[in-house]
Every structure is written in structure tokens, then in C-alpha cells.
């Protein structure tokens, strides 16, 4: 049972404290487990602070996303094979990512949010951010992929030729 007015204090990896509603934290498997592990009465307010291994700036983005998705159904539905597509990101989520996923940022924030979603066990946010990154590489050439993901080609020409041969077999 979740009390809408009940609030939880989260302490970030860089020492900040953020207080949020249980309505938001119920979407985080990590935070919910931490609260359960405290074995406190649901009416006990305030709860002890929950330490999260996420920095303050990233946590603010996570909270912004959770606020928009506070009424999403739980548990997050398991995707069927057909639903594992990357082109169905809701409009609000796309606009949310576009605000901070700039070319200059070179995916630093996106990686941070993906990692935070994984650590906090927020399945909807993890799904959306992984799709966002997958969309960046889908349909791209090898060179374009290297540029997007800042990868150094560390293969020799012979190794590249061998991989191309293997790929050619697979692609018949």
C-alpha cells in the first residue's frame, strides 16, 4: 500500500539530498526494495534516507521522467518479441531526451541516465533510453557508428577482412 503524501529522501553519490513522493519511487525497484528492507511501518514518516549511486544532476533528470510517468501501470509490462522495437518512443519522452542529448554532450548524459535507470531498476526509463541509443545506430554505416559511439578502429586490415568474410556468410 502506497501513501501518496508519503515522501522519501534520497542521498546522491555527490552528497546532495532530494526528497520525493513515494508515488514516484514506487517505479524504482531499487528504492522500493531499500524501503522494504528498512522494515518500517508504512505510516512512519519520515523514513531514513535511501542512498542511491547516482549523481545529483542525473537524479534530477530521473525524477523529471518519473514525475511524468508517475501513473504508469506497474509492474512494467514484459515486451513480446514484436514489441521490442525502437521506433515507438512516446512524444513526451522524445522531447525530454532532446533537451539534454545534444551533439556537444556526445551521449554523456544519455549513458548516465541509462546507467542510473539500471541501478535504480526503473524498467520504463531503461527501455526508453536504450531505444534512444539503438535508434542512433540503426541503419548507420560502420564509420557513422564509430563516430556516434566514439569508437577507435583497433582492427588490422586482415582482421577486418576476416570479419567481413564472416558477415558475408551470415548475410548469404
Amino acid at each position: 500500500r502506497i501513501y501518496p503524501l508519503m515522501r522519501v529522501t534520497l542521498t546522491t553519490s555527490d552528497g546532495a539530498s532530494v526528497t520525493v513522493s513515494r508515488q514516484l519511487t514506487k517505479h524504482s525497484g531499487f528504492i522500493e526494495k531499500a524501503i522494504t528492507d528498512m522494515a518500517v511501518d508504512d505510516n512512519a514518516v519520515p523514513l531514513s534516507a535511501v542512498a542511491v549511486d547516482v549523481d545529483d544532476a542525473t537524479l534530477k533528470l530521473v525524477i523529471e521522467w518519473l514525475t511524468e510517468h508517475r501513473d504508469d501501470a506497474l509492474p512494467y509490462p514484459e515486451k513480446t518479441d514484436e514489441e521490442r522495437r525502437a521506433d515507438d518512443i512516446p512524444a513526451w519522452d522524445q522531447a525530454f531526451v532532446q533537451k539534454w542529448d545534444t551533439k556537444e554532450d556526445q551521449q554523456q548524459t544519455l549513458y548516465a541516465v541509462i546507467t542510473a535507470a539500471d541501478k535504480l531498476d526503473i524498467k520504463g526509463l531503461l527501455d526508453m533510453t536504450c531505444k534512444t541509443l539503438a535508434n542512433k545506430i540503426n541503419g548507420k554505416t560502420v564509420e557513422e557508428m564509430r563516430e556516434i559511439l566514439q569508437l577507435e578502429c583497433d582492427f588490422t586490415e586482415e582482421e577486418l577482412a576476416e570479419i567481413r568474410k564472416e558477415n558475408a556468410w551470415c548475410e548469404n
Binding site: 521490442r84 522495437r85 525502437a86 531503461l126 536504450c130 531505444k131 541509443l133 539503438a134 545506430i137 540503426n138 541503419g139 548507420k140 554505416t141 560502420v142 557508428m145 564509430r146 559511439l149 569508437l151 577507435e152 578502429c153 583497433d154 582492427f155 577486418l160 570479419i163 567481413r164 564472416e166 558477415n167 551470415c170 548475410e171
Partner: peptide, 19 residues
């Protein structure tokens, strides 16, 4: 893996990017 799973048509090109 989560990202690769959402980009299944890119796996052959991804193999050529880096070790």
C-alpha cells in the same frame, strides 16, 4: 546487450567497429 537487442539489424556493422 540491452542496446544491441533493440538494434538487431545493426549487429554485422557493430562487429566491424572495434574489438
Amino acid at each position: 546487450r540491452e542496446i544491441i537487442e533493440r538494434a538487431p539489424e545493426s549487429i554485422f556493422n557493430l562487429r566491424l567497429t572495434s574489438r
